[in-house]
Design a protein around this nucleic acid. Structure first.
Length: 222
DNA sequence: TTGCCGATTACCT
DNA sequence: GGTAATCGGCAAC
């Protein structure tokens, strides 16, 4: 097959994709391809886990209550840009900005499956190839403060693309977000979206991995 | 200017 | 399951 980078470069997600409802964007980001180019090579990741952050009315968001600081400035701007921040003194986390300017909402990129550049990922992750967790994702893709504000709709050093891969809605799990206990009731909002079977932190990894209704137990969701 | 704590991870028991 | 590592953001003093 042709070098897949060429394929992804021709299928970059347009601005309009990001300018919609944040929950819809989050759900639809699952299955999309995050492409990262550096002098070291190309890494491509199929997104399997994300979290929605709903702006000023979401106590768990950096922009909760209308907070606007140099750090979260990108969230206040145009949709389709990358918001990267530093946390815990040693980690970076990457988000995709959604909605319109003045509506500071975003989707945190938490994990995925490496489609290209596995060797490079292994090197950056010190021998590990798993990309489940926002800081691991940034490490695997070499995303740092330098990439903060990058426009993801241009096929440059970081962008998101569509390649026809489809995640059926019934394979998407909606569960509470991680590490936001301080946000009170909002910590329970089911704004974390995971593709069933993806080995995400704090989730059973054997649930419907083959797309079969394997022991769909007691409570019937929905 | 100070001080607390975080949208985490890895490694220990 | 517990916790150290490690530092910048941000609110309060």
């Amino acid at each position: 097959m042709a070098y897949p980078l060429e394929v992804w470069q021709r299928a970059v997600l347009p601005r309009e994709f990001y300018q919609r409802d944040t929950v819809a964007v989050a759900r639809e980001l699952l299955g999309k391809v995050l492409v990262r180019r550096t002098p070291e090579g190309v890494v491509a990741l199929r997104l399997m886990e994300v979290e929605a952050y709903l702006g000023v009315d979401d106590p768990a968001a950096h922009t909760a209550g209308g907070r606007r600081t140099p750090r979260n400035e990108v969230m206040w701007g145009e949709a389709g840009h990358l918001y990267v921040y530093f946390t815990y003194g040693m980690h970076f986390c990457a988000n995709v900005v959604t909605r319109a300017p003045g509506q500071p909402e975003a989707v945190l990129l938490r994990g995925g499956v490496v489609l290209w550049g596995d060797e490079l990922v292994q090197r950056r992750r010190r021998g590990r190839g798993d990309v489940n967790g926002p800081a691991k994702l940034c490490q695997a893709l070499a995303l740092t403060r330098r990439e903060n504000g990058t426009d993801l709709t241009e096929a440059g050093e970081v962008f998101l693309a569509e390649d026809g891969f489809c995640v059926p809605p019934e394979r998407v799990l909606a569960v509470p977000r991680v590490g936001v206990e301080y946000a009170g009731a909002a910590a329970l909002w089911p704004l974390r979206f995971v593709v069933r079977g993806f080995p995400a932190v704090g989730l059973r990894s054997d649930d419907g991995a083959e797309g079969l209704p394997s022991r769909r137990g007691a409570p019937k969701p929905r």
